[in-house]
Design a protein around this nucleic acid. Structure first.
Length: 829
RNA sequence: GCCCGGGUGGUGGAAUGGUAGACACGAGGGACUUAAAAUCCCUUAGCCGCAAGGCUGUGUGGGUUCGACUCCCACCCUGGGCACCA
C-alpha cells in the first residue's frame, strides 16, 4: 500500500505546469543560456520504451536543476516522423502513414507528459509536417546550389526487402541495418550529398568537442583517413597484336617501403582496365571470373576472410625501379570502391597478399623490410625461416607476413634505410619519374540520400527534356507528398504512380517535364532539427539566424550510441555546410554528448518482443507512479552503463518516496524544531553531494545521498519546515510531482520548479570530529575519534599510546609513521 | 585481427591511492497484529571461534608504494563497435 495517491497528484501538477507554462524557455537574453537536447524519437506504434525514459529522465534532471540555478534553458521535443515502419504498416493495413504517425505521436506526447518531462511543448516539431519538410527541401536546394548535392550513376547498396537504396552508413556487415536482409550492389542513378569534401574537417573537429571517446573513435574509423602513395605501374609492353595497347595501372599503398617485395599487381574485378588489358589467351577465364564475382553479394565476398580467389590476366607491368615484369591479376579481395581499385601484392609484408600468393603459388619475394631479428622468407615456400629463439620464433609461428616497419633489405639503393626514411626517398624518386605521388584516401563515401519510398520529403528537382535537371524554385516549396499513390513497393518510388505529382511543367521553359519521384533519406530531416527548435514557427526561414545564434550550439546532447556514424556524423556535416554558407556562427552542433546506457531485460539480455522481456513504461507508471519510474531508472546504475531491469528493485524507490511523504507530513502537522547541528551538517553534505553528482551524471549516488539523509531525518525529532523545503528542492528534479505537492503543503504558492537551487556551506559539510584509522604495517588495527584538524604530533602520540597498537609494535622498532590528516595513521615497524 | 568499455557479496551497484562492499533489492530473525499487509528494529562477503578476536578476500600472476579495487607489466574471461580500406 502506497502512502499517497500518486495518480491524483501527478495529473494535477502536469495540468498545472502546462497551464502556467512552467517549463518553457524564456525570450530573455540577459540570463545564461543552456540548450539541452534529447535525440528526438521515431514515433513508433510500440510507444515509449524504458530506454527512452532513461535518456529523457537524465536530461530532465539536468534541465530542472539548471533552471532552478537561474539559467535560461531550452529543452525542446519533437518527432522524427518520416520513415519506413509507417509505410510498411500502410502496406499491411491500408492506413495512411500520415494517419498512423499522427496517432503514434499523440501517444508519445501523452506518455511524455504523463512522466512529467519539462519539455518546451510550444516548440514541438514534426519532420513530416509540410511546414518542416519545406525547409528540408530548401536545404537540399542550398546544397545543390553550392555543388554539394549531385546526381550520379554509381554502384549503390540495394535492399530487396525494403525496396530501396541505402547509404553506406545504413549497411551493417553487408546487411540492411533495418531489416537485416542481405544488401546487393546495383548500378543506379541517385542523389548524393558531398560529405567527402568535409572529411578532414569532420576529423579535426572531433578534437574540440566533449564526446565519449568511443563515438569519436567510431567516427574516425568511419572516415578512415589513410596516408599513402599512389604508384603508377606502366605496361611498356611488346605488342603482339593491334588490340594490345600500352596502359598504366595506379595502385594505392600505405607501405611504399615494401615496393621491392611486390609479386604482382591485383585489380578489382570491376576495374575498368580489366577488359582492356586482358590477353586473348586469358580473356575467357577472366570474363568468367568477373561474372562470378559480380554474382556474389557483398556478404559472400567479404565473408570468406582469408580464402582468396583470383585469376591472371596475362598482362604484365614494369616495376618502377627494377624494370622487372610484374604479372597483373584480378581478385575479388581487392575493392573497386577504395583507393584506385588496384593494389600491389607484397606477400612478405601483408597477410592478405600472403594468403593470395600462397594459394596460387605466386613468386614470393623475400623480406624487404626487417626488424633485424626476424628470419627471411624461405624461397618458394614463403615461410619465415632461420628465426631462432624468442621474438623471431614467435613471429615465425604466427606465420606469414611481417607487417611491422623496420629497416630495408634487398631494396636496391634504398637498402639500409628505415621504413620512414625509405617512404620519403621513394616518393621523391617516384615523383621525379612521374611514377608516383603522395595521396590521402578515405573510407568515407558520399552520402546517398535517394530513397525509392513514399514516406519522406520529396526531392525538389524536375527533369525537363529540354533543360535537363531543374531545381524547384524556392517559391514553389514545399513539394507536397501526394495522396493518390500505391504504397506497394515495386522498386520504383510510389510517387511515380501519382499523375498529379509526377507530370509537371518545367519551371524554366514551361514544357512538359516530370518530377523526381524519390524521397530523401530521413536522416536528412534529423540533420538540422536542432536548429528548427530555435524558431519553430518561422514561416519565412528554415531557422532564424538570430535565434540560432542565441541558443546554439547545443550544450548537452543526450541519446543512444547507435547513431555514431549516422545522425551524429550527418548533423556535423550539415552544420559545417551551413557555417560555410554564413547562416550560422559555429561549426560543431553538439558541444557535449552523453550516451545513456541501454536498459536491459531482467536476465541482462537486450529487451525484445521475441524474448518477451519488454518492460512497458506505461504499466510501470500505472503501478508505481511516474516519480518512482523516473527515479528508479536513475537509481539502477551509472547513467552511461547498460543495466538490467529489476521489477523487485523499484519498491526501494517506492518506499523512499512514501517515507518522504510521511516525514514532510509530520513536519506540516507537528511543531518540529529546526534541524539540530548533526542533521544540519548532514543536510549541507547532502546538498553538496546531490549538486555535484547531477553535474557529473552520477544520478544513482545522488539518490543514495538523499536516502541517507532521509533515513536520518525521519528518525530524528528535529528538522522542520526549512529542512523540508531544502530537501524537496533537491528531490524536485528527480521526482517533480511529489516534490511539488509537498512544497505546496508546506504553504508555498509558487512552483518549486521556479525556486532557487539550494546552496551549501562548505564549513558545515565538514565534521568536527573525525574517525582516524590506525594501521600497523598497512593493516587496520583500531580507530580514534579526534577533533578535525588535530595536530600531527598529538595524533602520533595518541596512536602510539593505543592499547591495541601497543600489542602490535611491542618489541619492534618503529621505522616510520605516516599521517594523513583526518584520515589515517600508518605505523611501519 | 583492430578500436573502445567492463570483471567487486545471493542481486543492482558504491568507493579513482587512505576503514572494500555506501545506498537499494533479496534473504534470515524479531516487534506490532486475532491474522495478514504495511511499518519499525537487528543480522547479512567467506572461513575459524562460545566470545573477545583472528585470518582470507575486488578475474589470474607479477611489480611500484608506508598503504593498491584504484597506478604499471603480462595473461584470462566478457560486453560493444569496426573489419579483405592495401
Amino acid at each position: 500500500m502506497r502512502k499517497y495517491d500518486y495518480r491524483k497528484i501527478e495529473s494535477k501538477w502536469q495540468e498545472e505546469w502546462e497551464r502556467n507554462g512552467t517549463t518553457g524557455a524564456e525570450d530573455d537574453s540577459s540570463r545564461r543560456k543552456f540548450y539541452v537536447l534529447n535525440m528526438f524519437p521515431y514515433p513508433s506504434g510500440a510507444g515509449l520504451h524504458v530506454g527512452h525514459v532513461e535518456s529523457y529522465a537524465g536530461a530532465d534532471i539536468i534541465v530542472r536543476k539548471r533552471r532552478m540555478e537561474g539559467w535560461n534553458v531550452l529543452f525542446p521535443m519533437g518527432w522524427d516522423a518520416f520513415g519506413l515502419p509507417a509505410e510498411n504498416y500502410a502496406i499491411k493495413s491500408g492506413v495512411h502513414p500520415a494517419e498512423s504517425t499522427a496517432a503514434n505521436i499523440d501517444n508519445f506526447r501523452r506518455q511524455m507528459k504523463s512522466l512529467g518531462f519539462a519539455y518546451d511543448w510550444p516548440r514541438e516539431t514534426n519532420t513530416s509536417d509540410p511546414a518542416y519538410y519545406r525547409w528540408t527541401q530548401w536545404l537540399f536546394l542550398l546544397f545543390y546550389k553550392n555543388g554539394l548535392a549531385y546526381r550520379d550513376k554509381a554502384p549503390v547498396n540495394w535492399c530487396d526487402s525494403c525496396q530501396t537504396v541505402l547509404a553506406n552508413e545504413q549497411v551493417e556487415g553487408g546487411a540492411c541495418e533495418r531489416c537485416k536482409n542481405e544488401v546487393v550492389q546495383k548500378d543506379l542513378e541517385q542523389w548524393f550529398l558531398r560529405i567527402t569534401e568535409f572529411s578532414d574537417r569532420l576529423l579535426d573537429g572531433l578534437d574540440g568537442i566533449d564526446w565519449p571517446e568511443k563515438i569519436k573513435a567510431m567516427q574516425r574509423n568511419w572516415i578512415g583517413r589513410s596516408e599513402g602513395v599512389e604508384i603508377v605501374f606502366r605496361s611498356e609492353r611488346v605488342r603482339k597484336s593491334e588490340s594490345e595497347k600500352d596502359f598504366s595501372i595506379s595502385v594505392f599503398t600505405t607501405r611504399v617501403d615494401t615496393l621491392f617485395g611486390v609479386s604482382c599487381v591485383v585489380l578489382a574485378p570491376e576495374h575498368p582496365l580489366v577488359k582492356e588489358i586482358v590477353t586473348d589467351e586469358h580473356r575467357a577465364t577472366v570474363g568468367e571470373y568477373v561474372k562470378q564475382a559480380q554474382g556474389k553479394s557483398e556478404l559472400e565476398r567479404t565473408g570468406t576472410e582469408l580464402d582468396k580467389t583470383g585469376v591472371p590476366t596475362g598482362a604484365t607491368v614494369k616495376h618502377p625501379f627494377t624494370g622487372e615484369d610484374i604479372p597483373v591479376w584480378i581478385a575479388d579481395y581487392v575493392l573497386a570502391t577504395y583507393g584506385t581499385g588496384a593494389v600491389m601484392c607484397v606477400p612478405a609484408h601483408d597477410e592478405r597478399d600472403y594468403g593470395f600468393a600462397e594459394k596460387y603459388g605466386l613468386e614470393v619475394k623475400e623480406v624487404v623490410v626487417s626488424d633485424g631479428e626476424s628470419g627471411k622468407l624461405e624461397a618458394g615456400s614463403g615461410k619465415i625461416v632461420g628465426g631462432g629463439e624468442g621474438e623471431k620464433g614467435r613471429r615465425g609461428e604466427m606465420g606469414q607476413a611481417f607487417i611491422e616497419k623496420g629497416r630495408l633489405v634487398d631494396s636496391g639503393e634504398f637498402s639500409g634505410l628505415t621504413s620512414e626514411e625509405a617512404i620519403d626517398k621513394m616518393v621523391e624518386a617516384l615523383a621525379s619519374k612521374k611514377l608516383g605521388e603522395k595521396k590521402v584516401n578515405y573510407h568515407l563515401r558520399d552520402w546517398l540520400i535517394s530513397r525509392q519510398r513514399y514516406w519522406g520529403p520529396p526531392i525538389p528537382i524536375i527533369y525537363c527534356d529540354k533543360c535537363g535537371e531543374v531545381p524547384v524554385p524556392e517559391k514553389d516549396l514545399p513539394v507536397l507528398l501526394p495522396d493518390d499513390v500505391d504504397f506497394n513497393p515495386t522498386g520504383e518510388s510510389p510517387l511515380t504512380a501519382s499523375k498529379t505529382f509526377h507530370d509537371v511543367k518545367c519551371p524554366k521553359c514551361g514544357g512538359d517535364a516530370r518530377r523526381e519521384s524519390d524521397t530523401m533519406d530521413t536522416f536528412v530531416d534529423s540533420s538540422w532539427y536542432f536548429l528548427r527548435y530555435c524558431s519553430p514557427h518561422d514561416g519565412e526561414h528554415a531557422f532564424s539566424s538570430h535565434d540560432v545564434a542565441r541558443w546554439c550550439p547545443v550544450d548537452l546532447y543526450i541519446g543512444g550510441a547507435e547513431h555514431a556514424v549516422l545522425h551524429l556524423l550527418y548533423s556535423r556535416f550539415f552544420t559545417m555546410v551551413l557555417y560555410d554558407a554564413g547562416l550560422i556562427p559555429f561549426e560543431e552542433p553538439f558541444l557535449k554528448l552523453i550516451n545513456q546506457g541501454m536498459v536491459l531485460g531482467e536476465g541482462g539480455e537486450k529487451m525484445s518482443k521475441s524474448k518477451g522481456n519488454v518492460i512497458n513504461p506505461d504499466d510501470v507508471a500505472a503501478e508505481h507512479g511516474a516519480d518512482s519510474l523516473r527515479m528508479y531508472e536513475m537509481f539502477m546504475g551509472e547513467f552511461e552503463d547498460a543495466k538490467p531491469w529489476d521489477t523487485q528493485g523499484i519498491v526501494g524507490v517506492d518506499r523512499f518516496l512514501d517515507k518522504v511523504w510521511m516525514t514532510v507530513h509530520d513536519v506540516v502537522h507537528t511543531e518540529r524544531p529546526e534541524a539540530d547541528d548533526a542533521l544540519d551538517r548532514l543536510l549541507h553534505k547532502t546538498v553538496r553531494k546531490v549538486s555535484e553528482d547531477i553535474e557529473a551524471f552520477k544520478f544513482n549516488t545522488a539518490i543514495s545521498a538523499m536516502m541517507i539523509f532521509l533515513n536520518e531525518w525521519s528518525k530524528s525529532a528535529t528538522g522542520g519546515r526549512e529542512t523540508a523545503g531544502t530537501f524537496l528542492k533537491l528531490l524536485a528534479p528527480y521526482a517533480p510531482h511529489i516534490a511539488e505537492e509537498l512544497w505546496h503543503e508546506l504553504g508555498n504558492e509558487k512552483s518549486i520548479a521556479l525556486e532557487e537551487w539550494p546552496k551549501w556551506d562548505e564549513a558545515l559539510t565538514k565534521d568536527e570530529v573525525v574517525t582516524l584509522v590506525i594501521q600497523v604495517n598497512g593493516k587496520l588495527r583500531d580507530s580514534l575519534e579526534v577533533a578535525a584538524g588535530e595536530d600531527e604530533e598529538r595524533v602520533k602520540e595518541m596512536a602510539l599510546a593505543n592499547e591495541k597498537v601497543k600489542g602490535y609494535i611491542e618489541g619492534k622498532e618503529v621505522k616510520r609513521i605516516v599521517v594523513i590528516q583526518d584520515k589515517i595513521i600508518n605505523i611501519v615497524v
